[in-house]
Computed example of a mutant assay.
Amino acid sequence: MRIFIASSGERLNMAIEVGSWLEGMNVEPVLWNEPEVFPLGAYTWDALIDLSENVDAAIFIFGEDDQIWFRGESTMTVRDNVLLEYGLFSGKLSKANTIFLCDGRPKLASDLEGITWGDIRKKNSVRIKLENWINSIRASNQKKVKGFKITDLNDAFQIALKNQKTEKLRIFAISTFKSVQMLRLINDISINHAEIMLREYDNKNDEYYDQSMEGAIDNAILNWKHMLENDHKIKELDIFRFNYHPDEGYYIFDDKYLILGNLKYEMDKKEYTFSKNVMLIDNQTETGRTWIKEYITRFEDTKKNYETSVMQYCDIES
């Protein structure tokens, strides 16, 4: 999940702090001052419209930024562009997915009267309210999932693991280092049997060989073993190694969900990336069930070719 955070320049530090809270809730914050928000050569309003189509929700920080005269009296109000942007995002994302936090008691537009807002100075209570709000968005997204959905890997995990218990998890990828770290942060999950296929390099003959990537794979294996032996989130773990370079990676949760993403390797930079956006496919449609079945077959066929390199582990406490 990606959430845009906007504020005046004077309250940028508050926006950064809110961003750190969101990161602790497995959310990707997008602050208004990040280079990707306003790229060179783009009109500000056009950039904001584009951004509103590439985030899931938005948080605006309203402060006592500017002095105005209202009905003969001096008062402090929200920065005009922050208020304007709030209107844009609430229109694009819905008012349920666009909220504002107040620093002090700035004058608000009368159209906003009655909307519940958070007091950013009450940090403990507002963090709890933010987490409840994020969970409500995730729950709403889960209800909308039917067939195919484009999302990010963390949100795909949250949806696929919503029932907490998975009998069989199959993963085919190069390293899984980042994804296993994400999985370790999700509470109260139970995976009966995980089968992980990871890349194996021949550092003499492999044109894709990269020592840093091999280190990432080793760290991923350590994290998988930690989920088994220390976190006790996995009862049985099999790790397979394959020796060719794939162009896709995927995760299969039982026969219910398939998460599919592209793998890209830039030879000149010796750099590999897993696609930021993934496709989440569920078994609620005939087409979805066909895709999941096809990838289970593909996984099992690949596994047969490499079963001699399997490493097997078992949670001795289970």
Score class of each variant (00 low, 15 high):
274 F>Y: 15
315 D>E: 09
273 T>I: 15
297 T>L: 00
305 N>M: 09
275 S>F: 10
276 K>F: 08
274 F>H: 14
271 E>V: 04
286 E>I: 15
288 G>L: 03
278 V>A: 06
289 R>L: 12
280 L>V: 11
276 K>T: 14
297 T>I: 01
285 T>I: 14
291 W>Q: 10
293 K>G: 09
272 Y>L: 14
285 T>F: 08
313 Y>W: 08
308 T>D: 12
285 T>K: 06
310 V>C: 09
303 K>A: 05
276 K>H: 09
315 D>G: 04
306 Y>V: 12
312 Q>R: 11
312 Q>H: 10
312 Q>E: 08
311 M>P: 07
277 N>P: 06
299 F>R: 03
294 E>S: 10
302 T>K: 11
308 T>V: 13
301 D>Y: 03
281 I>K: 02
295 Y>I: 01
309 S>M: 15
296 I>W: 00
307 E>Q: 07
280 L>N: 02
286 E>H: 11
285 T>V: 13
279 M>D: 00
284 Q>M: 13
294 E>T: 10
309 S>C: 08
309 S>E: 13
294 E>M: 00
290 T>M: 07
271 E>M: 07
292 I>H: 01
298 R>T: 08
306 Y>I: 15
311 M>L: 14
312 Q>M: 05
296 I>Y: 00
296 I>M: 02
280 L>P: 03
296 I>K: 07
305 N>T: 11
313 Y>V: 10
307 E>A: 01
274 F>R: 04
283 N>D: 15
280 L>R: 03
283 N>S: 15
314 C>A: 05
282 D>K: 03
299 F>W: 06
275 S>E: 13
300 E>V: 13
275 S>H: 08
294 E>W: 02
309 S>T: 15
298 R>N: 08
312 Q>I: 01
274 F>P: 04
292 I>V: 05
303 K>S: 07
280 L>Q: 01
293 K>Y: 03
289 R>C: 12
279 M>V: 07
272 Y>G: 07
316 I>H: 13
282 D>T: 09
283 N>R: 04
313 Y>S: 05
299 F>K: 05
277 N>Q: 10
273 T>W: 10
288 G>A: 03
303 K>G: 04
308 T>A: 12
299 F>T: 04
290 T>K: 08
306 Y>G: 06
286 E>R: 11
303 K>I: 00
292 I>T: 05
288 G>P: 02
298 R>A: 07
294 E>K: 14
308 T>M: 05
278 V>D: 02
295 Y>G: 04
305 N>Y: 03
299 F>S: 01
314 C>Q: 13
298 R>I: 00
294 E>H: 09
295 Y>C: 06
279 M>H: 01
293 K>S: 10
294 E>C: 00
313 Y>D: 02
287 T>R: 07
306 Y>M: 08
314 C>I: 15
297 T>A: 04
283 N>Y: 02
291 W>M: 11
271 E>C: 04
313 Y>F: 15
306 Y>H: 14
295 Y>F: 13
307 E>D: 11
311 M>W: 11
296 I>S: 00
305 N>D: 10
274 F>C: 06
297 T>Y: 00
292 I>Y: 02
301 D>I: 04
305 N>P: 02
277 N>D: 11
295 Y>L: 06
310 V>Y: 02
